[in-house]
Amino acid sequence: MSDAAIAEMSFEQAMAELEQVVGQLERGDVALEASITLYDRGAKLRAHCEAKLKEAEEKVAAITLDGDGNPAGTKPLDAG
Rank of each mutant, 00 (worst) to 15 (best):
Met1Gln: 11
Ser2Cys: 09
Asp3Phe: 00
Asp3Arg: 05
Ala4Trp: 06
Ala4Glu: 12
Ala4Gly: 15
Ala7Asn: 10
Ala7Asp: 09
Ala7Gly: 01
Glu8Asp: 08
Ser10Asn: 02
Ser10Gln: 06
Ser10Leu: 07
Ser10Asp: 07
Phe11Pro: 02
Phe11Gln: 12
Phe11Tyr: 14
Phe11Ile: 07
Glu12Leu: 08
Glu12Gly: 09
Gln13Ile: 03
Gln13Cys: 05
Gln13Gly: 02
Ala14Leu: 06
Ala14Val: 04
Ala14His: 09
Ala14Lys: 07
Glu19Gly: 10
Gln20Asp: 13
Val21Asp: 12
Gly23Tyr: 01
Gln24Thr: 04
Gln24Arg: 15
Leu25Ser: 00
Leu25Met: 05
Leu25Asp: 02
Leu25Phe: 03
Arg27Pro: 11
Gly28Arg: 11
Gly28Asp: 10
Gly28Lys: 11
Gly28Thr: 15
Asp29Gly: 06
Asp29Trp: 14
Asp29His: 14
Val30Gln: 00
Val30Leu: 04
Ala31Lys: 09
Leu32Phe: 15
Leu32Tyr: 13
Leu32Ile: 15
Leu32His: 13
Glu33Cys: 04
Ser35Pro: 06
Ser35Asp: 13
Ser35Asn: 11
Ile36Gln: 06
Thr37Arg: 15
Leu38Asn: 03
Leu38Gly: 00
Tyr39Gly: 11
Asp40Thr: 14
Asp40Ile: 07
Asp40Leu: 14
Gly42Met: 02
Ala43Gly: 10
Ala43Arg: 15
Lys44Arg: 14
Lys44Leu: 05
Ala47Ile: 06
Ala47His: 01
His48Tyr: 03
Cys49Pro: 05
Glu50Pro: 08
Lys54Thr: 13
Lys54Trp: 06
Glu55Val: 07
Glu55Pro: 12
Glu58Phe: 11
Glu58Gly: 04
Glu58Asp: 14
Glu58Asn: 12
Val60Tyr: 06
Ala61Trp: 01
Ile63Cys: 03
Ile63His: 03
Ile63Thr: 08
Ile63Met: 07
Thr64Ile: 12
Thr64Ala: 11
Asp66Val: 02
Asp66Ile: 05
Gly67Gln: 14
Gly67His: 14
Asp68Lys: 07
Gly69Leu: 04
Gly69Ile: 00
Gly69Lys: 01
Asn70Val: 15
Asn70Ile: 11
Pro71Leu: 14
Pro71Ile: 07
Pro71Val: 10
Pro71Gly: 08
Gly73Tyr: 01
Thr74Leu: 08
Thr74Arg: 13
Lys75Ser: 09
Lys75Gln: 14
Pro76Ile: 09
Pro76Ala: 15
Asp78Lys: 08
Ala79Cys: 09
